[in-house]
C-alpha cells in the first residue's frame, strides 16, 4: 500500500517534469513581459527628463532624446531651494510615517487582541476615515489649523498625513494581525508579562513584515503628496520636493524636461528606501519566526 502510494507520487513528478518545464518557460515569459512593462516607465521617465519641450511634444514620445539635456538636472538642482525641499520631504515623511505606524499598531493591537465592547464601533469610525474625498476637507482643515495657529507650520502636515493614512494603515495591519499566531502572546500573558511588554516585545516584532509594507505605502503617499502642502504651507522654508515640480509649471507653458528631472531626483531616495524596506518584508518574517 505504501509502496504504490510512493510510486504514484514519483510518477506524477516525472510526468510533471516535461510539462512542468514548458509551464515554467511560459510562466517566465509572462513574468518577463510584465517585468518589462513595469520597469519601462522608469526608463521612460529618465529619457523624458533629458528632453526639451520641443522633443516632448513634437517627436515620438518613445524616441531617445536626440541631444540629452543634462542641464535639465542642473537647472533643477540649482534653482530654488531644492536642498531644503529635499530635507523637508525626508523628515516630514519620516516623522509622519513613524507616527502613523505607531498609532495604527496601537489601535490594531487594541482592536484585535484586547476585549472591549466598543472595539467594533471604533474600528468602524476608523474605516469611515477612508471615505472622505481629500478636497472636501481643504477648507475645514485650513480653518481648523488657522484657529490653532498651525497654518504655515509643518506640524499641520504631519498631523494631517497621519490622520489621513491611519485608516488605511489600520486596515492593512488588521488583515495581518488576524493571521498572526496568538500562542506566543497568550503564553506571555500566562507568564505575567505586562501588556506593553507583549505589544512592544512580541507583537510589534512579529508584525515587522506588515510594518515594512505599510511603511512603504505610507512613505510613497506622503512623499508624493502636494495638495495639503500647497494649501497649508506658504513659506519656502517648509515646502517639499513636490513643490519643486510646481516651479516648472507656468501660466501658458510648462518646462516638461525639468519636471521630468525633478521627478527622477525625487524618485531616487524612495527607490533606495523601497529596495531596502522590501527586503525587510522577507527578513522580518525570519526574525519573527525565530522569536515565535
Amino acid at each position: 500500500m505504501t509502496e504504490t502510494g510512493q510510486q504514484e507520487v514519483k510518477l506524477q513528478k516525472s510526468e510533471g517534469n516535461a510539462a512542468g518545464k514548458f509551464g515554467y518557460a511560459i510562466l517566465y515569459l509572462i513574468l518577463g513581459i510584465i517585468a518589462v512593462l513595469q520597469i519601462y516607465p522608469l526608463i521612460w521617465l529618465v529619457f523624458f527628463s533629458l528632453k526639451t519641450n520641443q522633443e516632448v511634444f513634437n517627436a515620438s514620445p518613445f524616441a531617445l532624446p536626440a541631444d540629452p539635456k543634462w542641464e535639465n538636472y542642473a537647472t533643477v538642482w540649482t534653482q530654488g531651494n531644492i536642498n531644503l525641499y529635499f530635507f523637508n520631504s525626508v523628515w516630514i515623511t519620516l516623522v509622519s510615517v513613524a507616527l502613523t505606524i505607531l498609532l495604527a499598531s496601537f489601535v490594531t493591537f487594541a482592536i484585535t487582541r484586547m476585549n472591549w465592547k466598543l472595539s467594533k464601533l471604533v474600528l468602524g469610525l476608523f474605516m469611515i476615515g477612508l471615505m472622505i474625498p481629500v478636497h472636501s476637507t481643504l477648507i475645514p482643515l485650513f480653518n481648523f489649523f488657522l484657529s490653532i495657529n498651525l497654518i504655515d507650520h509643518p506640524l499641520a502636515l504631519i498631523l494631517t498625513y497621519t490622520a489621513f493614512n491611519l485608516p488605511l494603515t489600520i486596515m492593512i495591519l488588521l488583515g495581518f494581525y488576524s493571521t498572526l499566531p496568538r500562542e506566543v502572546e497568550e503564553a506571555a500573558v500566562i507568564d505575567g508579562s505586562s501588556i506593553h511588554r507583549i505589544f512592544f516585545q512580541i507583537t510589534l516584532p512579529m508584525s515587522m513584515p506588515v510594518m515594512s509594507t505599510t511603511f512603504i505605502i505610507n512613505m510613497i503617499y506622503n512623499w508624493n503628496e502636494f495638495v495639503f502642502i500647497n494649501t497649508f504651507i506658504s513659506s519656502d522654508s517648509y515646502k517639499t520636493l513636490t513643490v519643486g515640480i510646481q516651479n516648472f509649471i507656468g501660466q501658458y507653458s510648462t518646462d516638461w524636461g525639468a519636471i521630468g528631472a525633478t521627478l527622477v531626483i525625487s524618485i531616487l531616495p524612495i527607490l533606495i528606501a523601497f529596495v531596502f524596506l522590501s527586503n525587510k518584508i522577507v527578513e522580518g518574517i525570519a526574525a519573527g519566526a525565530v522569536k515565535g
Binding site: F106, W116, F126, G129, S136, T137, P140, A163, L166, P167
Partner: peptide, 29 residues
C-alpha cells in the same frame, strides 16, 4: 487583555486625531 486604561491609551491618540482632522471636515461637508 481587558484593561480599560490600556485600551484607552492605545486607541485614544489615534481616535482623537481622526475625530478632529477627519470627522470635523466630514460633518462640515
Amino acid at each position: 487583555m481587558s484593561n480599560k486604561w490600556v485600551i484607552a491609551m492605545y486607541v485614544l491618540p489615534a481616535l482623537l486625531l481622526i475625530l478632529v482632522l477627519i470627522y470635523v471636515p466630514i460633518i462640515l461637508t
